[in-house]
């Protein structure tokens, strides 16, 4: 993700969660969070439980989100030199001293505790961006959407049929002591059981709405969601069968070696020692074997990122 993509991402997140953008440029946002976004991003569970219990009007936080730190700094430096001396950052030194004092007892203070408009630089891998990623994931798990029919093509008294599809975004991990990942988007027609790939990309081209449009009717689903999930699993398995598993064979080889090495170390030790100690050593041996399996055993794991029911008119 480059700075531009991050900027676009942040903008869409802020809009989707109803935040008030106070100021923006191509490299930053100043934003007053909506209650929903504040709950996700500011890590103030006690405050929010207080608001929930007492029903007071919540005071949400404002953030300065910088999506391109270098350009933003250049921009502000320029602005500052232009309006030289016009109300520079008052009390900056005192604030810094305060932060330094906090960091002495905690080792580290996340930027922007105590300051009124904390600044976050949102480079890829930064904690705030990670948090936005996680918030998007939590806030976008399950959807149910309807395709808006193309209005011009439709006679006003007609009703267009649309078919329900299950769409699933799944992350596949190929794991031993290292890991590689892939994303797949499967769609299953709940009417026919047809399975398609790259389903998410198809969706992105469509106009989707959470409400059933007026002149559209939904055809019945003949498949349960459970059955549809089975079909996706099958399709994924079929796909995965065509992959190369040299990495897994190599990992198994290493696993075998490691286990042999362990046996070479522990088995003579078990023979030599008396009963009382043997138990201890046997337990240790077991624990080591467990650890090695945990570390090396090759496996393919899946994780559903999100899923939804999509009522589409184009596809059967």
């Amino acid at each position: 993700m480059n700075a531009k993509q991050i900027h676009r991402f942040v903008e869409r997140y802020l809009e989707a969660t109803g935040c008030t953008i106070l100021e923006k440029s191509p490299v930053h946002f100043k934003v007053k969070l909506s209650p929903a976004a504040d709950r996700e991003l500011t890590n103030r569970p006690y405050y929010w439980s207080f608001v929930d219990r007492t029903g007071v009007e919540p005071e949400t936080m404002s953030l300065l989100l910088v999506t391109d730190a270098a350009k933003y700094d250049a921009m502000t430096a320029e602005a500052e030199s232009a309006g030289a001396g016009a109300g520079g950052p008052q009390g900056g030194a005192a604030e810094q001293a305060g932060m330094a004092a906090l960091s002495r007892s905690f080792g580290f203070v996340p930027t922007g505790l105590g300051t009124r408009m904390p600044r976050d630089d949102l480079h890829f891998g930064s904690r705030r961006l990670e948090q936005l990623f996680a918030a998007a994931r939590r806030g976008g798990r399950f959807v149910c959407l309807f395709q808006q029919p193309d209005e011009r093509a439709l006679h006003p008294y007609d009703s267009a049929p649309c078919t329900p599809w299950l769409g699933v975004n799944v992350k596949v991990g190929f794991v031993c002591d290292m890991k590689r990942e892939e994303m797949h988007a499967f769609g299953v027609s709940l009417a026919t059981g047809t399975v398609v790939e790259r389903f998410f990309d198809r969706l992105q081209g469509l106009k989707l709405s959470p409400r059933l449009p007026a002149n559209v009717h939904v055809t019945g689903a003949s498949l349960s969601l459970k059955k549809a999930a089975d079909l996706i699993e099958q399709a994924l398995l079929q796909k995965l069968k065509t992959y190369d598993y040299g990495w897994a064979a190599a990992a198994n080889e290493r696993l075998k070696e490691e286990l042999a090495r362990l046996a070479h170390y522990y088995e003579p030790l078990l023979k030599e020692t008396d009963d009382k100690q043997r138990e201890q050593i046997a337990a240790q041996y077991e624990a080591r074997k467990e650890e090695i399996l945990w570390q090396l055993k090759p496996r393919v794991v899946t994780e559903i990122v999100n899923a939804g029911v999509f009522h589409l008119s184009g596809l059967a």
């Binding site: 976008g140 890991k179 994303m183 959470p210």
Partner: peptide, 26 residues
């Protein structure tokens, strides 16, 4: 029949996961 999540966040979640994807072992 609900509650359902927001379509934009749904799309952003996919985008985020794609960005974070570890595409290579090495």
């Amino acid at each position: 029949n609900g509650p359902w999540d927001d379509w934009t966040l749904f799309a952003l979640a996919v985008e985020a996961e794609r960005a974070k994807l570890v595409t290579s072992f090495d």
